[in-house]
Write a protein that binds this DNA or RNA. Sequence first.
DNA 1: ATATCGAAGTTGACGCGTCAACCTATTGGT
DNA 2: ACCAATAGGTTGACGCGTCAACTTCGATAT
Lengths: 149, 149
Amino acid sequence: MDKNWLNEEEMQLWYVWKCTYKNIFGRVVKEMSETGLSEEGDFGILMRLVDLGNGELRQQELVESMEWTKSRLSHHLTRMEQRGLVLRKPLDTGNGVQVIITSAGKSAVDASRPIYANAVRKHFLDQLTEQDMELITKLAQRIDKMPAD
Amino acid sequence: MDKNWLNEEEMQLWYVWKCTYKNIFGRVVKEMSETGLSEEGDFGILMRLVDLGNGELRQQELVESMEWTKSRLSHHLTRMEQRGLVLRKPLDTGNGVQVIITSAGKSAVDASRPIYANAVRKHFLDQLTEQDMELITKLAQRIDKMPAD
DNA sequence: ATATCGAAGTTGACGCGTCAACCTATTGGT
DNA sequence: ACCAATAGGTTGACGCGTCAACTTCGATAT
């Protein structure tokens, strides 16, 4: 009963939680890989461009909506630009950069959407009972409320 | 009701789940950072060396126990060796490498254990209801049973 | 002995994230 | 008009993971 160590069960629960997350997320990522787009980055960005901005958004808006750092986004956009998924255009009205989806980007996100939806359903949503969903929502609220310290 | 898209609630639940994980894990990682050891890698390896092997283990045993690839472990050990946390010695009995914790490694893991325990409790265990724990356990079983495809 | 095969590790290249430093417009105060 | 501060982005270095290619050392069969 050492207060300074985790006992077997505590360790186990922590471990199981991490594994479960990684399994689910890993499976979704794996199914997404056939689309050539990554789940968090590529797909997240392209989807936002289309759904929120009808094809284009300011870089700053993307940063806020994704809760990424500007650095991370900048790096990622550079890579996506090289792959021909988006292009960047300096705003004429002063500071700022407009991110615009290319036709290749549009095709990619269109093709990926059903695959994404299926993967998330199959590996996550379909595995949850109604009660599970409620618990997850409540847990999320509790965690959100906690100071990150 | 497009079967090929995720609707608002589905999207939301998936998002919330990912955020919750990242929040919890991120907070634990952050508290660990003051120890100079990473949670998954450094601490996981050192802890296993001590608890499973009384200070040393074969690289292959580490690989199995951590469920890492040998490549990942090799890279990580190279970095840890450079930091003076472990050292590697070729086995005289043929193939294989023995990983041995250094005194610096031992001190580091000793000092980190309580910090780790506190962080996991504070940000994870203490936030869970009995019901949540059950959810996690049951979900894990369901997920494990599923073929990864 | 020899050829083969598999187990154990290493290596290099690449994509991803973070961090700190930096650049350059715009804005607000005096 | 001028100076400082801030907002918006970029860049370079570094650690981390993955993947594929490669080495090296047994074990096993012939």
